[in-house]
Design a protein around this nucleic acid. Structure first.
Ligand code: MN
Ligand code: MN
Ligand code: ZN
Ligand code: ZN
Lengths: 149, 149
DNA sequence: AGTTGTAATGAGACTGGTTCTCATTCTATC
DNA sequence: GATAGAATGAGAACCAGTCTCATTACAACT
């Protein structure tokens, strides 16, 4: 998932958002954000430390918690029990996921505008019955990816 | 979530489905199925062994795997990292979930028929772009429940 | 009823992903 | 450059979940 912010401005946006919470945009955190920004699909923790051997495990876990807490990244529960991570939608764009139950991978799919209008209406309908206050929604499709048929 | 099968027939349906895979519908498995059938919301493992102290932990985990494998129950990834379990949709009815990020609870919501027609159309649209073969979908709303506002 | 093969059970050991600890090192601000 | 709070990293600790293995229950046959 590409960012829709111009390449140069992503770092600035992240730094700003961290500053707001008295947090620093340090080397390790930058490495993780850059990695997620350039990844074609949501990334598992294992993939992450493999491709970023400079970042120690204990620190990487902490960075993920900090970045998630600051709303910079989002955690996705995949079908294999291992979470995946991606930039949050304020830094990319709203989209949905295809979850493969064979290999565990997660794929991004961006719906059309009319699609999203319909979804928003449906979410409102669901929530009304319950006094629930919605923050976000996710329409996940579970099945088998092209590689795993 | 109530079952739509008449009370008496649920056990028969489950037994049949297990038999098909040369599995037995034993005491412990029955306890878990009954518990899920009478529960108002998806149940975490902790809740489960608390309310079923007769079922040992190691057996309970195994029962859940067997029942999930046989398509009798479904595992839901909640926002707190702990899975929840419910009867699968062949035994209840298709529905969606409201996930509270404050308390971690999961609520069932049953959409209207027209709602589901629309959703099905949208899922087909998403999947086409990817050569992905869909098995099921889930439209989850993340936010705060009435208790946690 | 007895035999046999396979499924199921349960206590406890074990695993490995994740979190915690703590001593040390940065970094923003005064 | 002094100070305080944030960040770091190695390793210990934790604990949900899995595995092992000896035992028991069950179904299908003779
Ligand atoms: Mn995504
Ligand atoms: Mn449900
Ligand atoms: Zn796959
Ligand atoms: Zn709540």
């Amino acid at each position: 998932m590409r960012t829709h912010a111009a390449d140069g401005s992503l770092d600035e946006l992240v730094e700003l958002q961290l500053r707001r919470a008295d947090l620093r945009y340090t080397e390790g955190r930058r490495r993780i954000v850059d990695m997620l920004a350039s990844s074609e699909h949501p990334v598992s923790f294992a993939e992450m430390i493999t491709s970023l051997p400079q970042v120690p495990k204990s620190s990487a876990y902490r960075h993920l918690m900090v970045l998630e807490g600051a709303g910079i990244i989002r955690r996705i529960a995949a079908t294999d029990g291992f979470a995946r991570f991606e930039l949050s939608e304020v830094l990319t764009e709203h989209h949905h996921h295809l979850l493969c139950t064979s290999c565990g991978r997660v794929f991004d799919v961006t719906p059309s505008a009319s699609f999203e209008r319909t979804t928003a209406r449906m979410v409102a309908e669901l929530v009304d019955q319950f006094g629930f206050s919605p923050v976000s929604h996710s329409l996940d499709v579970v099945g088998h990816c092209a590689d795993c048929q």
